[in-house]
Design a protein around this nucleic acid. Structure first.
Lengths: 343, 343
DNA sequence: TTGTACGCGTTATCAG
DNA sequence: CTGATAACGCGTACAA
C-alpha cells in the first residue's frame, strides 16, 4: 500500500494525495476530504523513511539521556515529548552509556536521523570547543550546566545549582549544624555535581565554618550515580570513617533516602540524631518516612522552557541563551535543629 | 556527504562502498579497508532513511510502554535495549497514553517504521481477536498477560501473577491476619491487576475467609496508576471507610510506600498496628523505612527472555509461547504477625 | 486546481 | 571482485 495505490483508488494523481496529507493550501477541500477518507479506510500509513529521505530534515528532535535510571529525567522526558508531539515533531529517545561521549553520539544520530534539534539530559558537559562547534543544529542542556567557562555559548535551562545548594547548606547551618557531611558527584564531575558542591563550600565559608574533607563523600564513577543504593553505600562508608556530623546533605533525593536507610541501620535517628537533606523534589522523598527536606526543581516549567527554547532556536534561529529557574526549599521531616552543641 | 562522494574519493563505484559498509563477502579486503578508512576520515554517516527505504525492513523493534512513570519498566527497557543493540537492532521507545489503544499504536508504528517486532510493557491487554490478527509482525507481552481466554496465541514473559499474589496473601494469612485490605488496579483491568486480585481472593477462599468488598480498593482509571500518590490517596480513603483491617496488601511497591505514609499520618504503625506488603521488588521498597515485604520479579531474566523470545520469533518464525518465571517472596520489615485476635 | 516526472541516498541485481 | 543501474516511496517543480 503506497501513495500510488491511494492515488489510483481516489482516481487522482499522487501529488494531490500528497497535498492532502501534508495540509497544502493548493487543493480543493472536497477532494482533500475524499482522499483523507479513503486513506483512513484503507488504513494506509505513509512510509516514514521515504518522507524523511525527501525532506531535507526529519521534523524530529532527539533527547539524549545519560543515566537513564534517574527517575528525575522521566518527568522531564514526558513533558518534552508531549511538547514535540503538539508541534508535530517526533521525539527520539537516545540513551548515552556512562562511558560514552555525548557529543559523539549526538553528532552521529543528528546526521543519521537528520534531526532538527537535540536536548541533553544528565552527564558531565565539558567538551573541547571544536567539538561543540561541530554541532550544527540547535541544542539545549536541560537541568545541567557546564562549569566550563567556554560554555556560555550553550543554551541551557536549569535552576542555579550553585545558589540552590548554597540555600540548602545555609538552611542547615541556620538550624545550628556545624558538621555537615555532603554526598556529592564523582571527583571528575564538571557539571551540576560540582556546582552543588561549590554552593555547599561557599555557605560554610560564609559562616566561617572550615571545610572538612573527611565530610565530603564523592560518588564512584561509572556506577549508577544518583541511586538509592549509591547513597546507602556511601553513607555506610562515611560512618566507618568515624567522623562526627550532625547533618548529611545528599545532592539528590534518592541519595538521601539511601542515606537514611544506612543511618537507621546504625541506630542513628533522623532527624533527632542527624538531619538529612536531599535535592530535586521527587515524589519518593515526599512519601518517605521521614519525608525528605529538599530543594524542589520546577520540573514542568523547566521541561516546557527547554522545549520552547529549542523550538525557538529551530524556527527563528535565535541565539542560545541560559534560562534559570528558582528552586524551592521544602522543609520536611528529615531535618531539625542541632541539639549537640559541642562536637 | 553521500555514498557517491565517498565513492569518488575512493575512486570506486558506489556499490563497492556499500559492500564495504555492509560487510558483504564479495569484496577485496584491501579495498574494503581503504574505503572504511576514508569513510572514517570524512566522518560520513550513511543516511538511515535511505537505507530503510531500500531495505524491506528497518532492523528495528519498538517497545511500547503504557504508564511510563512506572520505574519498574525502566529496568526492563534498559536491558531490552541492550539486547537489541548487541544484535545490531535499533530499539525505538514508544509511549502509549493511558487512554490510547496500544494495538492501534503498534499497527501504526510498525508500518511507519517497518519494524520487525514489538514488545509491549504495561497496560490492559484484552483486544478483539481480529485486531490482534492484524499484527503481522512478532510481538511479546512482557510482565503483562491477558486474562482473556483467547490470549493463548500471544507470546508473553512474566511471573505467574495469580500464583505469586496467592503466595503473598497466603503468607499474610499465615501471620494470623484475617482482615486483609488490598489495593488493586481499576475495576476494568483485564491484565495483571485482575490476576493479582484473583490470587488474593483465592487465598482467602482456601482459608475460609469471606471476601469483604469493603476491603478491596480499586485504583482510579486514567490516573497515574501504580504511583506513590495513588497508594497514598487510596489508603486515606480506605481509612475513612472505618473498616478494620490488620494488613494491607498493595499490588505494587510504590503503592505500598504511599500506603505506609498514609497510615503513618493517621498514627497507625507499620508493622505493629498494620502489616503492609507490596509487589515487584523494586529498589525503593528495599530502602524504605520500614523496608517493604514484597514479591520480587526477576526483572533481568524476564527482560532477557523477552528479547530472546522476540528475536527467535523474528529469525526462526517460532511459534509464540508463554514463559513464566518464579517470583520470590521477600519478607522484610513491613509485615509482622497479627496481634489482634478479635476483630 | 491537478497531474507528470524527477530525484532524494541507499542497496540489490546484474553484467562485466 | 567491481561498476552501472534500477528500484524503494514520497514530495515538489513544472507544465497543463
Amino acid at each position: 500500500m503506497t501513495i500510488k495505490d491511494i492515488a489510483k483508488r481516489c482516481k487522482v494523481g499522487v501529488s494531490t494525495v500528497s497535498r492532502a496529507m501534508n495540509d497544502h493550501p493548493d487543493i480543493n477541500p472536497e477532494t482533500k476530504a475524499m482522499i483523507l477518507r479513503i486513506i483512513k479506510e484503507s488504513n494506509y500509513v505513509p512510509n516514514n523513511s521515504a518522507r524523511n529521505l525527501k525532506r531535507s530534515d526529519a521534523r524530529a528532535i532527539a533527547v539524549l539521556i545519560k543515566g537513564i535510571g534517574n527517575t528525575f529525567f522521566n518527568q522531564l522526558l514526558s513533558i518534552i515529548e508531549k511538547a514535540c508531539h503538539d508541534r508535530g515533531y517526533s521525539c527520539i529517545l537516545q540513551r548515552v552509556e556512562e562511558g560514552e561521549d555525548e557529543i559523539d553520539v549526538a553528532l552521529k544520530v543528528a546526521k543519521e536521523k537528520k534531526l532538527r534539534g537535540i536536548v541533553f539530559l544528565g552527564g558531565n558537559f565539558s567538551h573541547p570547543r571544536d567539538k561543540m562547534l561541530q554541532m550544527e543544529i540547535p541544542y539545549v542542556l536541560s537541568t545541567i550546566y557546564s562549569t566550563d567557562a567556554k560554555a556560555d555559548a550553550c543554551a541551557s535551562v536549569s535552576v542555579d545549582d550553585f545558589a540552590e545548594s548554597y540555600k540548602m547548606t545555609d538552611y542547615l547551618i541556620g538550624l545550628g549544624h556545624r558538621r555537615i557531611a555532603i554526598i556529592t558527584a564523582c571527583r571528575e564531575d564538571e557539571s551540576i555535581g560540582k556546582l552543588r558542591l561549590m554552593g555547599y563550600c561557599r555557605a560554610l565559608e560564609k559562616h566561617g565554618i572550615p571545610l572538612d574533607e573527611k565530610l565530603v563523600c564523592y560518588m564512584e564513577k561509572n556506577v549508577d550515580q544518583y541511586s538509592f543504593r549509591s547513597g546507602y553505600k556511601i553513607t555506610k562508608k562515611l560512618l566507618k570513617r568515624d567522623t562526627a556530623f550532625t547533618a548529611l546533605y545528599a545532592t539528590s533525593d534518592t541519595l538521601a533516602i539511601g542515606a537514611c536507610r544506612a543511618l537507621k541501620e546504625e541506630g542513628i535517628r533522623v532527624p533527632e540524631d542527624c538531619s538529612v537533606a536531599g535535592f530535586d523534589g521527587m515524589d519518593a522523598g515526599e512519601f518517605y518516612i521521614p519525608s525528605i527536606t529538599t530543594i524542589r526543581q520546577p520540573v514542568e516549567e523547566i521541561a516546557l522552557a527547554t522545549a520552547d527554547l529549542l523550538f525557538e532556536m529551530i524556527k527563528n534561529k535565535e541565539q542560545p541563551k541560559r534560562l534559570i529557574f528558582d528552586g524551592e526549599l521544602l522543609v520536611r521531616e528529615s531535618t531539625a535543629a542541632c541539639e549537640k552543641t559541642n562536637i
